[in-house]
Simulated assay, not measured.
Amino acid sequence: MTRIRELDTLRGFAACGITVVNTWQHTAGALERRVPTPADWIVENLLQGRFYPVFSFLFGVSFVLFLRSAARRTPRPWWPLLRRLGVLACLGLLHRFVSPGEVLLPYAIAGALVLLPASFLPRWLVLTAGVGGTLWAVLAEAGGIWLVPGLFLLGMAVIEYAPGPRALAPAFAVSAPLAVALTGAWVYLWAHPETFRFPYTVAVYPLAGLASAVAYCTGVLLLARRAPGVGAFLQPLGRMTLTAYLAGSLSAAALAPLLARDGTRLGALAAAAAVLAILAGFAHWWLARFRHGPLEWAWRCLTWGELVPARRSPDPAPPATAPRDLSGGPAARDLGN
């Protein structure tokens, strides 16, 4: 199945953001006394709550893509899908010993309880339920984990409707100023707690997070079109998101006691950047030799109950009579795959 490179770009971008936020949160948890710093303001108002909505949305997208792929292999694609979610739940249970706020277990549960039944519904109803569920989570629960089911359904609906690339620029043009306005409103409200008397004031924070997530994602995709290096850096991370997520989380937990000694909190950002650089380098190296990331390969094997080929086959040598281009390489090489 041909990979959708834009989705890999977004997954890689979300993995970067989650790694930064997780490192920050683990460091904050190790602090005996927390004195706010400018770095706190940046993370909490520009990064916190901006990336898990992206992961949730993309999980709904991946659900549909997996179901379509499984339907070509078996007449009952829901069984491998349930096994896939079961493996994810087991990973989440183990991960909870390191990071109690992890998302894999809730994702697996919500996938089985929300996405699987929704796969039998017409797409317009899935879209309606996604919009309604997201609005309910924002207005009634001030976001948080309650956003996950609605965003799952929105991702599921969007991939079914498959909006074209022309939608990126208008989406960015609308979401970017909205994100700035909502974030500014939240900063003001936080500085003036008396305004929280209005019952829906707390909805400003999750709305700011959602608007920022849309702006960040559309902005990254637009940037990747003009700067191919952006996609080249993010896509390998996006192809092994599970490995990157768990490795980043374990690194954050291990480094937290050391990073907590830095009163400026800048050490957490530097550590997150270093971890991401290592993960990106590893992803490039690994995927040049193997088809899937380490945990992604194990996940696939357990899903299908068989050993899936892992190592890439060497490129076949071109025939002696193959036509050659001006650079000396085979003329038919690398036609977009």
Score class of each variant (00 low, 15 high):
Thr183Cys: 11
Ile159Pro: 03
Glu102His: 07
Gly144Phe: 10
Pro117Met: 07
Val98Asn: 03
Val158Gln: 06
Arg123Ile: 13
Gly184Tyr: 07
Gly111Tyr: 03
Leu135Tyr: 01
Tyr161Cys: 08
Ala129Arg: 03
Gly155Val: 06
Leu154Glu: 05
Leu121Met: 14
Ala157Trp: 04
Ile159Met: 11
Val180Pro: 05
Val174Ile: 11
Leu178Phe: 02
Met156Tyr: 12
Ala179Met: 08
Ala140Lys: 12
Tyr161Glu: 05
Pro149Val: 05
Ala162Thr: 13
Leu127Pro: 02
Leu154Gly: 01
Ala157Arg: 02
Leu116Glu: 12
Ala157Val: 10
Ala173Ile: 06
Leu147Ala: 02
Gly155Trp: 13
Leu116Cys: 08
Leu121Thr: 14
Ala167Met: 10
Gly143Leu: 01
Pro170Phe: 00
Phe120Gly: 10
Ala173Gln: 14
Leu121Phe: 07
Trp124Phe: 01
Ala179Glu: 05
Ala162Cys: 09
Ile159Glu: 15
Leu182Met: 11
Ala176Thr: 04
Gly184Arg: 07
Leu125Val: 08
Val98Gly: 02
Ala185Phe: 03
Ile109Val: 15
Gly155Asn: 13
Leu104Thr: 01
Ala118Leu: 09
Phe97Gly: 15
Ala108Cys: 02
Pro106Asn: 11
Val131Asp: 04
Gly155Leu: 06
Ala167Val: 15
Val180Gly: 05
Ala108Asp: 02
Phe97Glu: 12
Arg166Asn: 06
Met156Glu: 06
Thr128Asp: 07
Ala112Thr: 05
Gly144Asn: 11
Thr128Ile: 04
Leu116Trp: 06
Val126Gln: 00
Leu127Ile: 01
Gly144Ala: 08
Phe120Ile: 04
Leu139Gly: 09
Leu154Ala: 02
Ala162Leu: 09
Gly143Ile: 02
Ala140Gln: 15
Ala181Phe: 03
Ala110Leu: 15
Arg166Ile: 00
Ala108Lys: 00
Gly111Trp: 05
Ala137Glu: 06
Leu178Met: 13
Val126Gly: 00
Pro170Ala: 01
Phe120Asn: 08
Ala118Asn: 12
Pro170Trp: 01
Leu182Thr: 08
Leu151Gln: 07
Leu125Glu: 06
Ala169Asn: 02
Glu160Arg: 14
Phe172Asp: 00
Leu135His: 01
Pro117Phe: 03
Ala176Phe: 13
Ser119Ala: 14
Gly150Asp: 02
Val138Leu: 09
Ala169Pro: 00
Arg166Lys: 11
Ala169Ser: 10
Val148Met: 12
Gly155Glu: 12
Val148Leu: 14
Ala110Met: 11
Gly143Ser: 08
Val148Gln: 09
Trp124Gln: 15
Phe120Pro: 01
